[in-house]
Write a protein that binds this DNA or RNA. Structure first.
Length: 375
DNA sequence: CGTAGACCTTT
DNA sequence: AAGGTCTAC
C-alpha cells in the first residue's frame, strides 16, 4: 500500500464537505463523526483504472486528503485529480455576484453554503441516479453502498473496515441478477440496473472499449460534446429519463449549464418564478425535438421549458445555481408554505420575448471568466 | 400527446 | 411521500 497526504487552502465559504458529499450528488462517502474524516473509494481516472481509498477532512482554512493506493502515483497528479473532482477552478462567489445576482434577486444576501458541483465518473453516476428515481437520499446511499459491497472488489484486507470498488458494467453482469438485486431491496430498479449494465457491455464490445469511463468519453467525443445528442444516447438506457440523463450530463460530463428538473425545482419554478408554459414555446420545442426518437418519447415539454428558462436566466453555470437553490429548498423546507402567497417576482419571459431556441444554442463550455487562476 | 397509475421499499 | 420512469389509454 502506498500512502499519500496533502491539503488545499480553502475556506468553508468555497467548499463545505457535508453540503457537497451528503446532499444527493455522491452517495458513497461515509463520515466517521468521531474523527471527522470522510471515506470513499474512487476511480482516479485517468491516473489509474483501479479504485483507491480516499479520505477527506476539513477545518476552517483547509481541506486535507489522504490516499491509500495499490499502486505508485505522483503526488502532484493526485493533488490535481482532487482539484478537478471538486472543480476548484470554479469561483462560485464570483459567479453568484456577476452572473446570477444581476438577473435574479433570489441570490441576494444568500449564503452559498460551500455548495459545489462535483465532477464524477459517468458510469457510477449513471447507476447511482437510476437508483434515485422516486427515492430518498438515505436509501439511495444504502443501495450504492450495497452495489459496491456485494458486486465490487475488496480493496484491502488488512484494515478494520472493508472497502470495495464500485462494480464495472461487466462485474455487474457477471455477478448480479434482477433477483439478487431485488432481494437486496432495489425494488423495480433491479431490472433497470441489469438492463443498463448489459446494454453497456454490448455497446462497448461493438466499439472495442473495455473501460466504462472510456466508453462515455468516446460517446462524448463522438457527439462533439453536444448536449442534446448525449442526452438522447443516455436515455437509451433502461430507467433513464430526462432527469437522470441530465444529472449524468451535469455531474458525469460536467456540463455546467444543465439544470436537472426534479419535483423540488419544478415547484420552485412555478411558485417563486411564476413559470407558465405557453403554447408557442411548447410548439417550438416539439418541432425542435421532432427528429430525436427517445427525447421525443421521454421528454416532458413543460419541465423541459422550465429547464431552458433556468438555463437562460443563470447562464453557463446554471447547474451550479440549481445545486445551491436545491440545497436551500430541501434544507429549509417551504413545502408547507401556501402557494397562494404571492411572490413579488414577475414572470420572467413574455411569450413574444422568449424563444426557447435561444436557450437551445450550445454555450461555449470552454469560457473561463469564472475560472480561478490558481488555487 | 398528455395524463393517470403502477412500481419497490422505507421513513 | 421520497430529487422518476414506464406503460396503457
Amino acid at each position: 500500500m502506498n500512502e499519500y497526504r496533502g491539503f488545499f487552502n480553502i475556506c468553508r465559504r468555497s467548499l463545505q464537505l457535508e453540503n457537497v458529499l451528503q446532499t444527493g450528488q455522491a452517495f458513497r462517502w461515509v463520515l466517521d463523526s468521531e474523527s471527522g474524516w470522510y471515506t470513499n473509494t474512487l476511480k482516479l481516472y485517468p491516473l489509474t483504472p483501479e479504485f483507491q481509498i480516499i479520505r477527506l477532512k476539513q477545518n476552517d482554512s483547509k481541506l486535507e486528503y489522504h490516499l491509500e493506493s495499490s499502486i505508485k502515483l505522483e503526488s502532484r497528479e493526485i493533488h490535481n485529480w482532487i482539484k478537478q473532482y471538486f472543480r476548484m477552478e470554479v469561483d462560485v462567489e464570483k459567479l453568484c455576484e456577476e452572473q446570477w445576482l444581476p438577473n435574479d434577486s433570489t441570490f441576494k444576501g444568500k449564503n452559498l453554503r460551500g455548495v459545489r458541483v462535483l465532477q464524477q465518473e459517468p458510469w457510477e453516476t449513471l447507476i447511482s441516479f437510476i437508483c434515485s428515481s422516486n427515492n430518498n437520499i438515505p436509501r439511495i446511499s444504502q443501495m450504492c453502498q450495497k452495489l459496491s459491497s456485494h458486486y465490487g472488489n475488496l480493496l484491502n484486507k488488512h484494515e478494520f473496515s472493508n472497502y470495495y470498488s464500485f462494480p464495472t458494467s461487466e462485474e455487474l453482469c457477471d455477478r448480479a441478477s434482477v433477483e439478487s438485486l431485488r432481494s437486496l431491496g432495489f425494488g423495480y430498479r433491479a431490472r433497470y440496473i441489469i438492463e443498463t449494465a448489459k446494454l453497456l457491455v454490448q455497446q462497448k464490445k461493438i466499439v472495442g472499449i473495455i473501460n466504462d469511463t472510456e466508453y462515455f468519453q468516446y460517446i462524448s467525443n463522438l457527439y462533439k460534446n453536444d448536449y442534446l445528442q448525449i442526452r438522447e444516447h443516455l436515455m437509451g438506457y433502461s430507467g433513464v429519463g430526462p432527469k437522470v440523463a441530465d444529472c449524468v450530463c451535469l455531474m458525469g460530463f460536467h456540463m455546467d449549464d444543465i439544470v436537472p428538473i426534479d419535483v423540488h425545482i419544478g415547484r420552485v419554478a412555478k411558485r417563486d418564478y411564476k413559470f407558465v408554459a405557453s403554447k408557442k414555446e411548447l410548439a417550438i420545442l416539439r418541432d425542435t425535438y421532432s427528429t430525436m426518437k427517445l427525447t421525443k418519447k421521454k421528454i416532458n415539454y413543460e419541465l423541459e421549458l422550465i429547464r431552458l428558462m433556468f438555463k437562460e436566466l443563470w447562464g453557463p453555470y446554471a447547474g451550479w445555481a440549481e445545486g445551491i437553490l436545491f440545497f436551500r429548498e430541501i434544507s429549509t423546507p417551504t413545502t408547507l408554505a401556501p402557494i397562494s402567497k404571492e411572490s413579488k417576482k414577475k414572470r420572467l419571459f413574455a411569450d413574444t420575448l422568449y424563444d426557447p431556441k435561444n436557450a437551445l444554442k450550445e454555450p461555449n463550455r470552454r469560457q473561463n471568466k469564472y475560472i480561478k487562476t490558481e488555487v
